[in-house]
Structures are given as C-alpha cells and as structure tokens.
Computed example of a mutant assay.
Amino acid sequence: MTFVTKLRFESGDRAVLDETVEGLKGLLERKGAECKGPHADSPDRKRVPQYRSLAPGDSYGNWTYTVYTRRMEIHGNEHIAREVTMKEFPPSVHVEVEVEQRNPLGGHN
C-alpha cells in the first residue's frame, strides 16, 4: 500500500506562494521524494461587498482580490511527507493536506 500526500497551497501573494512551493519542491527533490507538481489552478478573483454601516443600502464599492492556488503530491516517503506537514509556512500561505492510501495496480484489499 502506498501513501499519497496531497498538498494544496493558497495565497493572495503570488510571489510568496511561488517561492514557498518552489522551495518545498527543491527540498523534496534533495531528500529523494517522488513529487508531482507544483500545478497551478486558474487564479480565483473574489469580490466582497463593503458597507458604510449596518443599515442596508449604504455601501462602498466591492473589495476585490485574487487567490492563487498551487497543488503538489508526494508519493510514498511517509516520513518526508510527515516532516513537510509539520513545517512552518508563511502566514500569508494557507496549506491543506490530504493523505490517501492507494493499493498497487492489481492489488487486493
């Protein structure tokens, strides 16, 4: 049985996001981990209404911002994946981790 650790990174700061993900990829390659990615999703443009007061109808223009996303997978190497999940990331980068167990092709449960 193989473990696949899926990492999803999101940030409004594209430069910090790219630097974080590329640094992590370099670390994984130096440690000999099989890594897929980073893969970039299309930027997600967010719009948030802003109100002058709690009364309805009195508002400013919408606040808009962009969220950038990168995805990576680590195959096998549970100890390296565990080390990565405990790593400190910049506060402007949101990290989600999902661990999946996969049986080898032709394997039985």
Rank of each mutant, 00 (worst) to 15 (best):
Y65D: 03
P91M: 03
Q50F: 05
R82N: 12
F89P: 01
Q50P: 01
V99G: 01
H79A: 14
E88S: 12
T69L: 05
T64V: 13
T64S: 12
G12T: 12
S42A: 15
A55R: 08
P104M: 09
E83T: 05
G57C: 07
G106H: 08
Q101M: 15
M1H: 09
C35H: 00
G57H: 11
K31D: 05
T2C: 07
S42G: 10
S59M: 11
G76D: 02
G57N: 08
P104C: 06
E100F: 09
L105V: 15
R70T: 03
R14Y: 10
R30L: 08
P38K: 03
K25E: 04
K36N: 11
H39I: 14
G12Q: 10
I80K: 02
M72K: 05
R102N: 12
T2L: 14
L17A: 04
K46V: 07
S92K: 05
R82S: 11
A81K: 02
K25Q: 08
S53K: 03
D58W: 07
E29H: 06
Q50D: 02
V67T: 05
A15W: 10
G61H: 11
A15G: 11
A55M: 06
K25H: 02
F89G: 01
P104R: 03
R47S: 15
L105G: 12
D18Y: 08
K31Q: 12
D18M: 10
C35V: 08
S59Q: 11
V4I: 15
E98G: 07
D18E: 15
L54S: 15
V21W: 00
S11A: 09
G23R: 02
D44P: 02
D41Y: 07
R102A: 14
S92F: 03
T69I: 09
R71I: 09
T66I: 14
F89D: 00
S59P: 00
N62C: 10
T20K: 02
L24V: 07
T5K: 03
M72F: 05
H79R: 13
